[in-house]
Write a protein that binds this DNA or RNA. Structure first.
Lengths: 343, 343
DNA sequence: CGATATATGAGGCACGCACCTCAAAAATCA
DNA sequence: TGATTTTTGAGGTGCGTGCCTCATATATCG
């Protein structure tokens, strides 16, 4: 009734412990037929190797790295907090995670930093940077050195050795669209879409999804082209000012970027935010406060703690060559209103 | 740079390994002053005991029990699936979880079953049954025998040794209220509230929260008293038939119970479900399909896999007397629309 | 103060596995 | 067939901890 051990496996396969060890740890010097005999015995008796005992014996410490962009926003802050929090719990699982910041817009620097990692005895890397050929190649190099990689929050669609941990941004955009359509009720008017820069793939995908839904309400809602703030408060204020001057009333605003504090202040200073429906992304101290006071109507979120823990679990599973619970690693597109806000 | 071990701790405290062991495992025969010296040393050098090594040495297998009501509905099915899924992963953590079904309305039987558990070498119990004095006392007995207990999905408000793993149902009700108010747009009319039985505490709390929000829209929306289906299809059809006959139009329906398949069929057969807003709870194969075809507008969910895993983590942490990551164990009130439905 | 009770130390074996060495067996080659 | 190479077995040590025994040191009491 108790779990089979390596001893049981040796007996079942009719080989010695030494050979079992050689097979389990892929050491050389074992005939193919013997490997197969052991493999069959593993399946027969349902042997699963006790990884905690193995890691104990091995004295192995897993080292994970999160490669994050070096600009500061509230979302990144949350990610760092979560990593620190996870680190404490990971301590007892012989795993640690560190953060490395890189300039998001310098693919060569990022790739170079990734290349350095292989020397440091790193076991896994979670990468949150825009995709680029340089990074894609660096990922492929990491992979061939046996270092596990996941794409964190931002997908790396062309790097097929990096599993994506994050949400489907197109679906997130559709979700916002649906909420926008329903929250604006029967009102007719203009819907604005703002982001920091349209360069970001996330923004593009969100917009795509948003438009899919908005198209169904074209008779009532007019969606304007995406306006870019470039993170510049003055520019932001100006474009919002202009947009609100239009003849048709603005009934909704979709803020696609992180760190919407500046933008929200600009909207308020221009007298918006009253009756219009405003929807943004990511639950931060700022957006929380705005959900409570009602200036934001809904926030689309991904659970940052979950993102971090899931990434680490996946990296570990890759390093240990074991499976994961798929349902546990699926990141949800969460809709947060004032009423269901956690805490 | 490496983690301190018991050896380091012994050296730091100026005692022997045997004494460290006595203190760590709360064995008797150690003077208070010595215990304190070791305790201080633990804090000083930041010792954290390697639980995987400890469990290995101890040969300990944690045995968890989920006590679930014996009636079958889709939600319970999901819970059982998740437990089985978790079990596979738990295998490598020396933990197993089994399900025991009990008649939900027989507090004495439930209490008796709980009392039996102590004999079986069970380490933790997750209880999903209506609260009752008998169960409350049985929980207290389990606690005094050192068996960890959590209240699973349904709170046990008077059992203070059972942590609650689930959502705040009053907040869930408020969330539904907010969605109902916004999704009905500017329409005026009647809102129906249905449940299987008003006896269920969950239903009562949800209704309470729902009414808080509905009260703000009293000029537009008239909320009817909760109607009970008693799980009887004919009765359900009859009360819905009557409700839809009224002079004022029905603009929304809130289904507070699990397993709303029957009720939805009754609504459809009575010609409802067309323009009205219908909101229910729990994401099951049935409600998924209804979100997709549009008969349901929104579903309020708790992540069942998360509920199960979180319960097990908490039970283990209690048994091992270690802490948990609070943010990881917080169950969210999830809003699921067609657009953000997982998978 | 000695007798007794209590605290503490030293050491060993075990858990399931990794990793090492050395010798013996089996397969391969000339 | 004998020499060489490859494969396998036997056995040991250690990872960090639990748990046990026995001897010794220290405190407590009459």
């Amino acid at each position: 009734m108790t779990r089979p051990t390596t001893k049981d496996l040796a007996k079942a396969a009719g080989v010695s412990l030494a050979t079992v060890d050689r097979v389990l740890n892929r050491r050389s010097g074992v005939r193919k037929v013997t490997v197969e005999r052991v493999t069959r015995a593993i399946a027969d008796i349902g042997f699963v190797r006790d990884m905690s005992a193995a890691n104990l014996a091995r004295g192995k410490e897993y080292r994970m790295v999160f490669l994050l962009p070096d600009h500061d926003d509230e979302f990144i802050d949350l990610v760092c907090d979560s990593i620190n929090e996870a680190n404490r719990a990971l301590h007892s699982e012989r795993t640690s995670a560190v953060v490395i910041r890189v300039p998001a817009n310098d693919p060569h620097r990022i790739a170079a930093r990734l290349d350095e990692l292989s020397a440091d005895g790193v076991d896994g890397v979670a990468i949150m940077t825009p995709e680029s050929p340089q990074v894609r190649d660096a990922i492929s190099r990491l992979d061939s050195r046996g270092i596990a990689v996941v794409a964190f929050v931002s997908n790396q669609p062309n790097a097929d050795n990096a599993l994506f941990v994050g949400v489907n941004n197109e679906a997130a955009g559709r979700t916002v669209g649906q909420l926008m359509a329903r929250f604006t009720g029967a009102q007719a008017g203009v819907v604005l879409v703002l982001t920091e820069t349209i360069q970001s793939r996330d923004s593009q995908e969100r917009r795509l999804g948003f438009d899919v839904i908005m198209a169904k309400y074209a008779d009532r809602l007019t969606v304007r082209p995406t306006m870019e703030t470039y993170g510049d408060p003055q520019r932001t204020t100006r474009i919002i000012h202009t947009a609100l001057q239009g003849r048709e009333p603005v009934v909704g605003i979709y803020l696609m970027h992180h760190d919407i504090g500046e933008t929200m202040r600009a909207i308020e200073s221009e007298g918006g935010a009253g009756e219009m429906v405003i929807i943004g992304h990511e639950l931060t101290p700022d957006t929380r406060a705005r959900l409570i006071d009602g200036t934001l109507d809904a926030v689309i979120t991904q659970d940052v703690g979950h993102l971090v823990r899931s990434s680490i679990r996946i990296l570990r599973a890759k390093a240990e060559q074991v499976g994961t619970i798929a349902s546990q690693e699926r990141i949800r597109i969460e809709i947060t209103l004032r009423e269901n806000m956690p805490e």
